Deep mutational scan, measured.
Amino acid sequence: HHHHHGSGALAALHAEGPLAGLPVTRSDARVLIFNEWEERKKSDPWLRLDMSDKAIFRRYPHLR
Rank of each mutant, 00 (worst) to 15 (best):
R48M: 09
H2T: 11
R64K: 12
S52E: 02
S52T: 08
L47F: 15
E16F: 12
E38H: 15
D44M: 09
R48A: 10
L19V: 03
E36M: 06
K42T: 07
R26D: 06
A11M: 05
I56Q: 00
R59A: 08
T25Q: 05
P18A: 08
A12W: 10
A20Y: 09
I56W: 01
W37E: 01
R26V: 15
S27A: 14
R30W: 06
F57V: 08
R26Q: 07
D44P: 04
G21L: 04
L13W: 02
L49F: 05
K42Y: 07
R26C: 09
R59H: 05
I33W: 01
L32G: 01
L19K: 04
H2L: 12
N35R: 15
W46C: 11
L47V: 14
A9M: 12
S43F: 12
L32W: 03
P61M: 02
D44K: 09
D50Q: 04
H2V: 14
P18N: 07
T25S: 11
V31I: 15
W46V: 07
W46M: 14
E39M: 12
H14W: 14
L10R: 13
H1P: 10
E39I: 12
R58C: 08
Y60E: 00
K42F: 07
G6T: 14
D44Q: 09
G8R: 10
N35H: 12
L63E: 00
H1R: 08
I33Q: 02
S52G: 05
L49K: 02
H1N: 11
G21M: 04
T25I: 01
H2M: 12
P23H: 00
G6P: 14
P18M: 06
A20E: 09
P23A: 01
V24H: 04
F34P: 00
V31D: 05
H3D: 10
G6N: 13
H4E: 09
P18L: 07
E36R: 04
L13G: 02
R30M: 13
R58M: 13
H4P: 11
A20Q: 13
P23Y: 00
R30I: 10
I33S: 01
D28G: 05
G8D: 10
P61K: 04
D28M: 04
E36F: 05
G17R: 01
A11N: 04
L47H: 11
G17L: 03
H62R: 01
L47Y: 15
